[in-house]
Design a protein around this nucleic acid. Structure first.
Length: 188
DNA sequence: CTCGGGATTGAG
DNA sequence: TCAATCCCGAGC
């Protein structure tokens, strides 16, 4: 089967975030094959990025971000939602791509718009932290179509990150109805 | 050890 | 507009 190998993830995090758009995320679980097309991502790269969990230093939670590329970083947010990331770059350089939205393709029966919803729809939780995403049961298949039109914006929910809050590191398929809705920014 | 808050979501 | 809900990570 043709799937994305480790060298795909061993590159610039922003390039990986863009190149993942249009690819198929596959999870084989309980005899079912769940498939969704990646339509929205965010890049978290390096020690300087204050929006990244790994900006300060290595901790028990973010440790996998420092590992070999091509592994999953899954964490619990707000005590109830899981977020799925793909580790990029070489060992000891902390970086990952957050998967924020999918277009349902097969086996999906609930919403995949938004990072918390897509992990629920794909049956992904913290037991998947650190798993190798270059082979089943959790892996990614290259685009089966041309390069999508890509748009970018600031990342969602990282207002605490100072000047990094406005970095253009969110990437999504232009005019795609499956991209997560961005709540209107509150005035003041 | 305590404590503030979060790469979110859905209800009211 | 706000609560849910739990773990992380900073600081004492």
């Amino acid at each position: 089967m043709h799937l994305l190998h480790r060298d795909f993830y061993d590159r610039s995090t922003m390039e990986v975030a863009k190149d993942l758009l249009g690819c198929l995320l596959v999870h084989e679980v309980d005899g079912k094959t769940l498939v969704g097309r990646i339509v929205e991502t965010e890049a978290y790269d390096g020690f300087d990025d204050r929006a990244s969990h790994a900006s300060r230093r290595k901790t028990p939670r973010n440790e996998v971000m420092f590992q070999e590329p091509g592994h999953a970083y899954v964490y619990l947010i707000y005590g109830m939602h899981h977020c799925l990331n793909f580790v990029t770059r070489e060992k000891d350089y902390p970086a990952a791509v957050l998967i924020r939205a999918l277009e349902p393709v097969a086996g999906i029966d609930v919403s995949t718009r938004g990072p918390g919803r897509l992990t629920r729809a794909m049956g992904i939780d913290r037991s998947h932290n650190r798993v190798d995403i270059t082979r089943p049961p959790l892996f990614v298949i290259p685009r089966d179509m041309g390069e999508p039109q890509i748009d970018c914006s600031a990342r969602i929910g990282v207002g605490y990150a100072g000047e990094w809050a406005s970095a253009l590191r969110r990437f999504f398929v232009k005019d795609c109805k499956w991209v997560s809705e961005q709540r209107a920014p509150r005035c003041q």
